[in-house]
Design a protein around this nucleic acid. Sequence first.
RNA 1: GGGCCCGUAGCUCAGCUUGGUAGAGCGGCGGGCUUUUAACCCGUAGGUCCCGGGUUCAAAUCCCGGCGGGCCCGCCA
Length: 484
Amino acid sequence: MSGEVEHRKRVREELISKNINPYPHKPLYQPASLRSVLDSPVEGAEVAVAGRVAAVRRHGGLVFLDIVDDGLRIQASIDKSKAGDVFEFFGKYVDLGDFVNVKGVLYRTRRGELTVDVRGLQLLAKSLRAPPVKYGHRLLDPEVRYRKRYLDMMLTPDVRRVLEVKFKVLEETRRFMWGKGFVEVETPVLQPIYGGAEARPFKTHVWALNTEWYLRISLELHLKRFIIGGFNKVFEIGKVFRNEDIDAQHNPEFTMLEAYQAYADYNDMMDLTEELISHLAEKVVGRNVVEVPVGDVKERIDLSRPFKRMTMYEAFKEYAGVDVEKLGDDEIRDLLAKNAISLAGGYDRGRAIVKLFDKLVGRKYLVQPVFITDYPRSSSPLAKPHRYNPDLAERFELFIAGMEIANAYTELNDPVLQAEYFRAEEERRKRGDEEAHPFDWDFVEALEYGMPPTGGLGVGLDRVSMVLAGVSSIKEVIPFPMMK
RNA sequence: GGGCCCGUAGCUCAGCUUGGUAGAGCGGCGGGCUUUUAACCCGUAGGUCCCGGGUUCAAAUCCCGGCGGGCCCGCCA
């Protein structure tokens, strides 16, 4: 309401005209953290705190206010008979939403609530707009929530809690990886050629070179160059960008952890993944059973080790009652047709099997953590063929709550095979599959210098955060999600 | 891309079926109240009823077309 803003602007003007700065540079009374005050309150002691006025309850000569600072709340009261000048100033110049600095004595009210009996008050920052809902209540309009996320965080403690889960995941992932002896590195976001995943990229223009470049869709190919360069254990946590749809599980930019380890294979990466996830459960939420909404039901998900492991073929048998290995290509084509699946770039047995897996098994059944291993070789152009079966790749994906959480390979390090697989991808692109992997000559050349046997892992940290926070939309764990 | 739903005060929503020219609660502002905590009581301001067109004496309401948004399905991590 414009009247409200006008009113507060007038208050601001009046303060300035009275030589009271509505936006002073520092608090007058050095504020203690609310955490320290609330954790070990000393009744009768003098304290100073600062924060936003989140609620005001006036009772004639006594006014109660809630002060919120850094996600915590404390009550203060101003007694006209004890601090008449403060009382008058507050009534005249302080509104809901303003930042204040108060000094006073800690006591407990009749109802037992810890309260600061205010004796001194300084306005720290005048707000011109009152918060749209009361502190502690939820903003309901998702449009407003995500576009004006500062209001969402400011007003709803649970929103802050969920975001804190995400940030703690980032922090604890680093701590875990460092502890395992991995070096945190960085790789370019802007690239002349993209790769490492199957996705449509974002394009951009580099003026200095007058050429089209891309935003990275994964971290993989540069991290492997670190392995070639002699770093044995590297990881990166970073944004990747995929030019695809926006929905409850997908945001066009999201945060991946990728890790590569020399002299390791996908079995080692499975152990590492399992250990990471349970480390995160323990450090971030302090328990290994979490509740996550999956579809219409809240699922109790047990993140304790070890996770179930099954091959993709076993999963087909168990959940879809299909023995894919024994199916002829005609039967697979029939299944594709029956499930209305079309394959961009023409029929390929391996890729068909993966699509069928997503459709028939994927999200429905893989609620408890499970590693699905041994993907069809042709669906994984950067993975090494399986040591016992050349039709398969040494690859696994981790599913939790019906979501793909992690993806890992024994990395392909044979440059001749890599070139061959890239060539096949290029053929597929020519046949119309926009998401086929581009041929990366520079990467093949790097492999030609020799890469040790390597295990590689990618983890979607937003989705991990969703599981740990128990939320069903990726928007909840991304501070400023992309909005249509 | 397909389907369903929504758009009225700062917020949450009623009014629409049955057309008569705009309402409530909360919030704001003013007043009252010295132990409240979604405080309470009294008063008051605040609206392009998403936009455009049509029907009608008359449209928030009925019809058509846009725009914005949400959810589900398909695809992608």
